Structure formats: C-alpha cells, structure tokens
Computed example of a mutant assay.
Amino acid sequence: MASLLDVRRADERFHTRAGWLDSRHSFSFSRHWDPKNTHFGLLLVSNDDVVAPGTGFDTHPHRDMEIITWVLDGGLVHQDSEGHNGVIYPGLAQRMSAGTGILHSEKNDSWTLTGEPAHQNPVHFIQMWVIPDEAGIKPGYEQLDVNDELARGDWTTLASGMPQHAHQRAIGIRQKHAALHVARIRPDETLQLVTAPFVHLFVARGSAELEGAGALTTGDTVRITGAEGQRITAGPDGAEVLMWEMNAAVPTS
C-alpha cells in the first residue's frame, strides 16, 4: 500500500489571538472544534504559540497526557505543583507527564536580580500532547539539552517510549508506540524520514521539499499514513523540522 500524504498549510490552522497570545493549532483545541480533525496517530495537540513578554499561561491543570514543549525563540518559565521549575530555551526539550494530575504555569516573565525583566521579547514555542499508553501514572518531569546533537544536522531523537530508542540519549515518554525527532537541516541537504504507520511532520522554520508532497514552508505540516522513508531536502536557508514517529493511533471506540 502506497503512502498517503496529507499536506496542511500554515494558514489553514485554527487561530487563537489574544492580547498576549498568538496561537495556531494543528488539531481541534479549546473553542476550535472540528470532529474530522481531532488527532493524527497518537498526537492530539500540536500548538504553535507566541507569548508576549511579561505574560503567559497561569496555573492550570492537566491529567493523563504526555506533554512535550520545544522552544524556537526566547525563554519559557515553567513551574508545577511537583516542585519543578526552570527556563526552557531553544535546544532544550521538556516533557511533563500529567498522570494522575498536575498543575503548572508557563510564562514569559522571568526577572533579573536588579528587578528588570529578563525576557523582553516574545517567546515562540511548539507544544505537543500525545496520549499515554497507561492512565493514572505518577506525574513526572524531564528535560534534555540537545544543542550539540542538533549541530550535526541529522535527526535527533528528543523523546521516545519505543523500546528501540532505550539506548539513545532522549527523554522518556509513557507511550511505547511514539517518538519525537527533530533536525536542523542545513541548506540544500537531504534527510530521510522514518518508516512507520503514522508520521507527522512539522516545518518549524525555514523551507523544504518533501518527496511526494512538494514544497513546504514555515508552519506547514504533513500527515503521512504508511510512511516509507520519504526524503526531505532543506531550502536555501535550511529548515528546522519536527517529526513524530507513531506505530499506533488513538482508539476510536
């Protein structure tokens, strides 16, 4: 069976605009609802958020979800009810397992010792949610700096629950059928996608040409059913690409 490639353009995403937030959603989220666009594979949320300085998401709850945050520009301050806190920056991946329940906030509001705002520019990040393979686990948190790996220009596994990635330096997630990879592809260079039942590709910045899909630009996504290792070539300015590899889908019953 040949691969099925479903290209979704950046300007086709749901759009939430508030005074402090500019957010684009690849799937149904919050007040945006389309019963035909609720998930792909095991990926339920892929939000492209820009948060203004001095603002952010106040403390709110999550439950039974694996949440991965990837910052493109700026710094995002994380605090949660399990006592974790810190600043997420480009090249530092974060995973929060909501499990039985967790409260957290995400803000662009850290301050220097002199009382001046440390973050005077917007923070731009991608937040992704996958359904765990076991409900009711203990909440957890993990982060990993992969800047050195990204400098190679090849795929880097950010987070995985797949047994085959157990030996790799990656964040663990409680989903044995999913893994997230990222690459900062150098201009005009080519990488190969994984072979998997479901692959979700997101062009976070730059441009690229995907075999079977054609030209892609910043914010474009491709949902591939039956991925067969298609090749992706970065444009003249390179590309930063996030790739979800998934061997199962959300149950429909």
Rank of each mutant, 00 (worst) to 15 (best):
S23R: 04
I126E: 01
Q230P: 10
R9D: 12
R184P: 01
T69H: 00
T252R: 15
G74Q: 01
D133Q: 04
W129P: 11
T38E: 07
Y141Q: 11
M1Y: 09
R186W: 03
G235K: 10
E116V: 02
A179R: 09
H32Y: 13
A2Q: 15
W155A: 03
G153F: 08
E228L: 02
H39P: 04
R13N: 10
L21A: 14
F57S: 12
L21Q: 13
V222C: 05
A2D: 13
M162H: 11
H62P: 09
A183L: 03
T233P: 13
E134D: 03
V250C: 00
Q230I: 02
H32S: 07
L5C: 15
A166S: 12
L92M: 12
D80A: 06
V50T: 15
T38G: 02
E189K: 15
A170G: 05
I185H: 02
N121D: 10
A248N: 07
L4T: 14
A183N: 13
E142D: 15
G172I: 11
F14L: 08
A234F: 06
H25V: 10
S207I: 09
D22I: 08
V182K: 06
D154E: 14
F29H: 10
L180T: 04
N247W: 12
E149Y: 03
H78Q: 06
R17S: 11
